[in-house]
Amino acid sequence: MAAARTLRVLPGFHLTLGYTLAYLSLLVLIPLAAVFIKSASLTFDEFWEVVTAPRVVASYRLSFGLSLVAAAINAVFGLMLAWALVRYSFPARRFVDALVDLPFALPTAVAGIALTALYAKNGWLGQYLAAFGIEVAFKPLGVLVALVFIGSPFVVRTVQPILEDLDTELEEAAACLGAHRWQTFRHVILPILLPALLTGFALAFARAVGEYGSVIFIAGNIPMVSEITPLMIITKLEQYDYAGATAIAVVMLLVSFALLLVINGLQAWTAKRTGRSR
């Protein structure tokens, strides 16, 4: 047992652990602690006044609400895109597969300018949407479009490997037992994909909450209408109100952490339930 226990420990474990803790402290823990310490310079009443200002609360609703909606949209259509890339062969399939990663490589400011030019009232698509009374650019809908764009690769790249490893014999067995396609997908395929789908949803949500570059151009930044929370933080910094900026950042951090904790808990519960059902 001692030999087996020794084999489980990597060579240089203590050095590796020390390096890992130092690395995480410098990049994650110390900056986050600095945010909390700086916001602590405010009294509770001052802190509450900053984080509950009507303009700031409106930015919370916009950022977190649209981030959840964008992540949900990406979960649905990202699954469909991953399914098409894995299960079907079609012309330019490799090109489409490479195109999925474009939001990763494209600078966010470039994405924002491109989306604004595309969906503005005189843009290629915006001029046709405006004829039906649909305004995208400089509206909350434009923020949603930008968040869907930057979060789409996360779901596709999370679900795609699971689909590739999924044995088609499971579907054939379900079909032999009389299940039609929707029943096969709902009772056989979806439970296997659900943990990965929730992971992609969480990643897309986390990416959308902190997005700034691509949103700032298409949002219009109208107070109480299309201002995102990261913009409120930048505004406070430009006014040299560092304590106010960190106070808003603390609220954003706590809410994001709570939502991600719930999503990860749901993911773990789903994975455990799926493993038990197997």
Rank of each mutant, 00 (worst) to 15 (best):
Ala3Ile: 13
Val9Cys: 10
Pro11Tyr: 06
Thr16Pro: 01
Tyr19Leu: 14
Thr20Ile: 11
Tyr23Cys: 14
Leu26Trp: 12
Ile30Tyr: 10
Ile30Pro: 01
Pro31Leu: 08
Ala34Asn: 11
Phe44Met: 12
Asp45Gly: 10
Glu46Met: 09
Val51Tyr: 08
Thr52Pro: 11
Ala58Ile: 07
Ser59Trp: 08
Tyr60His: 08
Leu66Asn: 02
Leu66Gln: 07
Ser67Arg: 07
Ala71Phe: 06
Ala72Lys: 08
Asn74Gln: 13
Leu81Gln: 01
Trp83Thr: 15
Leu85Cys: 08
Leu85Thr: 04
Phe90Lys: 00
Pro91Tyr: 10
Asp97Phe: 07
Thr108Met: 11
Ile113Pro: 05
Leu118Cys: 14
Ala120Met: 13
Gly123Tyr: 11
Trp124Gln: 10
Gln127Leu: 10
Gln127Ile: 08
Gln127Pro: 07
Tyr128Asn: 11
Phe132Trp: 12
Leu141Tyr: 09
Ala146His: 05
Leu147Asp: 04
Val148Glu: 03
Phe149Gln: 02
Gly151Val: 05
Val155Ala: 05
Val156Thr: 02
Arg157Asp: 01
Arg157Trp: 01
Pro161Val: 07
Glu169Trp: 01
Ala173Gly: 09
His180Cys: 12
Arg181Glu: 15
Phe185Arg: 04
Ile189Pro: 00
Leu193Lys: 04
Pro195Val: 06
Leu197His: 02
Phe205Arg: 08
Phe205Glu: 03
Ala206Phe: 08
Arg207Lys: 13
Phe217Val: 07
Ile218Cys: 01
Asn221Val: 10
Ile222Ser: 04
Val225Thr: 11
Ile233Glu: 02
Lys236Tyr: 09
Leu237His: 09
Leu237Gly: 07
Glu238His: 12
Gly244Glu: 06
Leu253Trp: 01
Val255Arg: 02
Val262Ser: 13
Leu266Tyr: 01
Gln267Pro: 00
Ala268Ile: 07
Ala271Met: 05
Lys272Tyr: 06
Thr274Lys: 08
Thr274Ala: 14
